[in-house]
Design a protein around this nucleic acid. Structure first.
Lengths: 264, 264
DNA sequence: CGGTATTTTGAGTATCGTCAAGGCCAGTGG
DNA sequence: CCACTGGCCTTGACGATACTCAAAATACCG
């Protein structure tokens, strides 16, 4: 067994797949845990490398340990759309689900814990807890896909970018190295390039750049480095985003508490 | 038991939940089928009625029998985004998944087969086949949500509308009263208003109208009535949509065969 | 037939996509 | 150590598209 020490504790419904989390939170049986240990191995991918091709069933179910993966669909005319990012704790591979209809590539250097598909699916049948975890995981992804739909449905790019940054804050807040509280404000590391961001938000890199600087002009963010954004005014950012990604801003508040707690 | 005679045979991966389909295709045990019969009841909703509120866990898992439901999220500022439609054979209710984060409303008059949640979830634990069906159903919805993401990521409204019409053709082709082949061309009933369509495609009703007429001007569709569109040239429509929603146009071809078969 | 809601059209403005050029940074090789 | 190169980000200018507001036309319903 390789070293799996990562934890994942999301603010809202968690469906993490790191072994530690599994054991503690999901109440997996000893048998299930032992099996998982047996059938797993750590894979490393360099940025840009392909993890899974579209149209084929990957030989394993994967759980991201470090780094960021992007899920993307390539259109006939060569355009590429990114339909989601996978970070620490995220699971992919369509257990029981048949072939993948999208490609998965490493957006950064990445470590993935891979569970061989056949024994994993077999284990699924005799471990209701793992099975439930898979269901919750897929539902979680469905919710997030719908969040993206809301963001993409927005007419103005500034709103989309603001929504993206909020998602980064709320959803990726458990991932080390992405968020860092800094006396009052918040430093967020944007894990993908402008081009990828454009593919994700359905626009062009130029528009992304302009939107970043437009948000900076209003004062709600600061651009410390191209990929290091300082969140100066989370509420203003939420207002820019249409203020809805954070339902009732409860999530926002709990986010702030979490960050303060971690900083303290 | 009420009369459940609807069938659902999708072109691609089906995860229908009508009892007949369940019995035949999923190999459900007699026990499971009997239980489902016991815990189901037919509910009727008038157009505009709310089926499930956001934020609460509905008391049942539902399967659409007739009509169309819309899943929508309401933003703080009152804007509403539709994140998907539910038609004949579609399932909703987040079995095992906790509270719903979106509202479900009847877009048209609707009949829903409702399975009481608690016994349904209990059955899930002792029927792996039903369990698998639920997983596949959620994965199916995830795929479709990502298809919407692609459509929404498109900069031009004409492309989005063309994509929507293609989805209507490919995904809803099994639903009676929505598609009707007519000597060479194809009549599609658009089950929602321009306003809802705008909410779904992330734009305004005016733009929807203009996009419809722009497509009509190019000749690929005809507007017989505001909600009755004649598909004149499916290939041209696919080209307008970016030609990618139909992967390799295999789906397109099989769609046409299906329609021809049904017409013949 | 009248009243209402929906759809359509129009004109003006803002935004975005496109094309092109410039700047910044890192890695490379002299 | 420095010039060079390539990739990424940024900026500018222009045209196309879509959003906004307003009003007309059409469809729907009683």
């Amino acid at each position: 067994m390789k070293d799996i020490s990562t934890m994942r504790s999301e603010i809202s419904g968690t469906a993490g797949f790191t072994l530690d989390t599994l054991i503690r939170e999901a109440g997996l049986s000893d048998d299930a845990v032992a099996t998982l240990r047996d059938i797993c191995s750590l894979r490393r991918y360099a940025a840009g490398q392909t993890v899974a091709e579209a149209g084929e069933e990957p030989g394993f179910v994967g759980c991201v340990q470090t780094g960021v993966l992007r899920m993307q669909k390539t259109l006939h005319d060569g355009r590429q759309h990114i339909v989601g990012l996978l970070v620490e704790g995220d699971v992919f591979g369509r257990a029981l689900g048949g072939p993948l209809d999208l490609a998965i590539e490493a957006a950064t250097d990445t470590e993935v814990m891979a569970f061989r598909r056949a024994p994993f699916e077999a284990l699924l049948l005799r471990s209701p807890e793992l099975d439930r975890l898979v269901i919750l995981n897929v539902m979680n992804e469905l919710d997030r896909a719908r969040d993206w739909m809301i963001i993409l449905g927005t007419p103005r790019i500034r709103e989309r970018l603001a929504g993206f940054l909020l998602v980064l804050c709320t959803r990726f807040c458990s991932v080390d190295h992405l968020l860092r509280p800094r006396n009052g404000s918040l430093d967020v590391k944007v894990p993908i390039s402008r081009t990828d961001l454009a593919h994700l938000l359905g626009t062009r890199p130029e528009s992304i750049s302009r939107a970043f600087h437009a948000l900076a002009d209003t004062g709600c963010i600061g651009i410390r480095q191209p990929d290091l954004i300082e969140i100066r005014d989370l509420d203003a950012l939420a207002a820019e985003a249409g203020e809805d990604e954070l339902r009732g801003s409860n999530t926002l508040n709990s986010l702030l508490s979490t960050l303060r707690a971690r900083a303290g």
